[in-house]
């Protein structure tokens, strides 16, 4: 049987670089470069850098 086609977009997790454990989930095209942005972290109550978490692990 033919394999199911991969979706064009993926959900990724952007973790706060303040090491608070806070993260945001965003959707980006599979072929796009990893996301990174400045966003508000409510734990430290500041705008901090969020970087996309490396995917994989279980797979």
């Amino acid at each position: 049987m033919a394999k199911k086609a991969k979706s064009r977009t993926i959900a990724v997790r952007l973790v706060s670089m303040a090491l608070t454990g806070y993260y945001k989930t965003l959707i980006r095209p599979r072929t796009h470069r990893p996301l990174s942005m400045l966003k508000y972290d409510p734990v430290v109550r500041k705008k901090v850098l969020f970087l996309e978490q490396k995917r994989g692990g279980r797979g």
Partner: peptide, 25 residues
């Protein structure tokens, strides 16, 4: 991490807002 944050953001901006970023968490 919060003490290092301004420096990290500066580096991030210099490297094209993540285009040249190597160390992903």
């Amino acid at each position: 991490a919060m003490l290092d944050m301004p420096q990290m953001i500066q580096t991030w901006k210099e490297r094209g807002h993540g285009r040249g970023w190597k160390k992903w968490p």
